[in-house]
């Protein structure tokens, strides 16, 4: 089970399992313990999972937050996959989930998650990260806080610097 970085530190007891979309013709196999389902699967089976606190969803970088039917805030966890760290779509997905769809639960970056992108991820609304296994997790905290300020408004700081400068 991978270590998860959250605001309050590194957790090594995370039980969530990321479930891939079933191959066509096969049915969905749920693991033991809490499961992150592809958002497409969740969309189609929402009623079956309603009210369960052990079901979350994950977005791949081409999935669109607009397609989600129903209330995201019933989900305890949403993950966004970075298939390659250079694929920047996940940043927009995170902002949309937070700012447009009002998601307030845990938002986790998974996939090709490296140290030097953590600060931008945090700014876009992520609050939990599974760092790629070969990266030094002890350096994550420094990278998450590498800047003490930023020019733009984003999820972490709602007002751009120009509105705070004059305050």
């Amino acid at each position: 089970m991978p270590d998860v970085i959250r605001k309050d530190g590194i957790h090594n007891d995370d039980l969530w399992t990321l479930v891939s979309a079933p191959v066509e013709g096969e049915s969905l196999q749920l693991p033991d313990g809490p499961a992150l389902l592809p958002v497409t699967v969740w969309n189609e089976n929402q009623d079956a999972f309603a009210g369960r606190n052990d079901i979350g969803v994950w977005f791949d970088s081409h999935d669109e937050p607009e397609t989600v039917a129903g209330d995201l805030n019933q989900l305890p966890l949403i993950a966004v996959n970075f298939p390659k760290f250079t694929d920047g779509r996940g940043y927009s997905i995170a902002r949309l989930l937070r700012e447009r769809h009002g998601y307030t639960g845990e938002l986790r970056a998974v996939g090709d998650v490296l140290l030097d992108q953590l600060f931008y991820m945090k700014r876009c609304g992520f609050d939990s990260y599974v760092l790629r296994a070969d990266k030094d997790i002890n350096k994550a905290d420094g990278c998450l806080n590498v800047f003490s300020n930023a020019y733009q408004a984003a999820v972490d700081v709602k007002e751009p610097l120009f509105r705070r400068r004059t305050a």
Binding site: Y91, Y120, C124, A150, Y151, Q152, A154
Partner: peptide, 17 residues
């Protein structure tokens, strides 16, 4: 200059296509 500040280390647009 306003565009410069807005675009500098923009967290959402550092990995564009």
């Amino acid at each position: 200059e306003l565009i410069r500040q807005w675009s500098t280390y923009h967290p959402e647009f550092a990995f564009l296509p």
